[in-house]
Nucleic acid binder design. Structure first.
Length: 429
RNA sequence: GGUGGGGUGUCUGAGUGGCCGAAAGAACUGGUCUUGAAAACCAGCGUACGUGAGUACCCAGGGUUCGAAUCCCUGCCCCACCGCCA
């Protein structure tokens, strides 16, 4: 959520900045709504003030021994007015305030100054290219062919068990998948200093509102049946970031911010992506991810995003997977993000770089929705903190990258050096 | 699932219809004292909206009342015990 004062004071500037994100802010609607809210609240409040005074007067008289009914008579006029008007005024004020809040909840974050202009992913700007795609002097297979021929990757079976966009892994393949997870977790915990955390994979609507998935993107989520408004998490970002919801961290515990690494499955409905990536495990309803989440002081978030992105890159580098780092343009930037770096890994099977990590600084956007604060020692006041998150990395897609980049002429797959300690002596699948 | 007890400010915790935005303590901030620190003492110390007067907020939502942190209803959560189950 944006700071309402900011819109109030500079509606045109905010609208212009949001345009970079392809979002059109109806400033006239906003200002009208805000003015209506203010008027309605003022009316309702002055009447409430009258009521309070009248009640006080009754209280005093009663204490002096006047019978209640008689005391009420002295403020008859006020009581009558309250009776006829207050309820309606209160409702009007509530409706106006709700309408404004709903509007605020659907306004995306303002992009950072660094963010390049552009409509879609084609305008994203490459800022780094690491490693070179290996020359493969035999017929290149994609991960589906590799995994199916080798065994261990079965999409037909998954389709029987559930439906499309799922996979069954078995044997060495399943182990390689697990090895990747363990390697990522250990690297972030030991080398990068993150705290490991394990969280629920099911969250309530409030958590999803906090991070920005609701109310606008309900279609992307799997909602559970039942009386509770429960959802499967689309990313660990949701439960982990919401740790800070409705909290005020003391300056001491917050000096270096909070850094979490969390491994979870992620569930996405992929509504609206019917034709895309139907082959293989690039786009699944269920996938695993090792997520990095930071809650930091506002003055540190910019640096911390850089560091977090480097931590994600370190995984690709240690796996010796060629990748490029791009900064997303305004039109491709997510709803809650101020600035996002995508890491795209080279996939020989597609002869393309594909997204494997997305690292974003949300600024105070999520914190304002969550009321996540820290006590600034300089002001001694609770102030909004900043949230940052990034994949380090998407495990399923990393498996795809390993299979395709480490394939051999005879249809097998070499185990990357750094994963060998996790593979119990297996060096080739 | 059953029974009982609870949810109050950053934290602990008092408050059972008007004197309560709310005692007290802790923490925090400033000051006095001290070579410095600790201790002690003094003062300050919630949030949102509103130019302001003011209004709202004591888990959430309803209700009773002229008036609700306080009474009633519903829900959620926590604690204890019992039952059931991994």
């Amino acid at each position: 959520m944006l700071d309402i004062k900011l819109i109030r004071q500079n509606p045109d500037l905010v609208a212009e900045q949001l345009q970079k994100k392809k979002f059109t802010l109806n400033t006239a609607e906003f200002l009208t709504l805000d003015a209506a809210r203010k008027q309605a609240e003022a009316d309702s409040q002055s009447l409430q003030a009258e009521r309070k005074q009248a009640s006080k007067k009754i209280g005093e008289l009663v204490k002096q021994g006047t019978p209640v009914e008689e005391a009420k008579k002295t403020v008859n006029e006020t009581l009558a007015k309250i009776e006829t008007q207050l309820e309606a005024l209160k409702q009007k004020a509530q409706q106006a305030s709700d309408a404004l809040h709903n509007l605020m909840m659907e306004i995306p974050n303002i992009p950072d100054d660094d963010v390049p202009a552009g409509d879609d992913e084609n305008a994203n700007k490459e800022i780094l290219s690491w490693g070179k795609p290996k020359k493969i002097d035999f017929e290149v297979r994609d991960h589906v062919d590799i995994g199916t021929e080798l065994g261990g990757l079965d999409f037909d079976l998954a389709s029987k068990l559930t439906g499309s966009r799922f996979a069954v892994m078995s044997g060495g393949m399943a182990r390689l998948h697990r090895a990747l997870t363990q390697f990522m977790l250990n690297t972030h915990i030991v080398d990068h200093g993150y705290s490991e955390i394990h969280v629920p994979f099911i969250v309530n609507a409030e958590s999803l509102r906090g991070t920005g998935q609701l109310p606008k993107f309900a279609d992307d989520l799997f909602k559970l049946e039942g009386e509770q408004n429960y959802y499967l998490i689309p990313t660990a970002e949701v439960p982990v970031t919401n740790i800070a919801r409705d909290r005020i961290f003391e300056a001491k515990e917050f000096a270096d911010g909070l850094h979490f690494v969390c491994h979870t499955p992620c569930f996405r409905s992929e509504a609206g992506s019917y034709g895309r990536d139907t082959r293989g495990m690039i786009r699944q309803h269920q996938f695993e991810k090792v997520e990095l989440v930071k809650m930091v002081r506002p003055d540190q978030s910019s640096d911390e995003l850089e560091k977090l992105t480097l931590h994600a890159e370190a995984i690709l580098q240690q796996l010796e997977l060629p990748y490029r780092k791009v900064i997303l343009c305004g039109g491709d930037l997510g709803f809650s993000a101020l600035k996002t770096y995508d890491l795209e890994v080279w996939l020989p099977g597609q002869q393309k770089y594909r997204e494997i990590s997305s690292c974003s600084n949300m600024g105070d956007f999520q914190a304002r929705r969550m009321m996540a604060r820290w006590r600034n020692p300089e002001t001694n006041k609770p102030e909004l903190l900043h949230t940052i998150n990034g994949s380090g990395l998407a495990v399923g897609r990393t498996l795809v990258a390993v299979l395709e980049n480490y394939q051999t002429a005879d249809g097998r797959v070499e185990v990357p050096e750094v994963l060998k300690p996790y593979m119990g002596g297996i060096s080739v699948l």
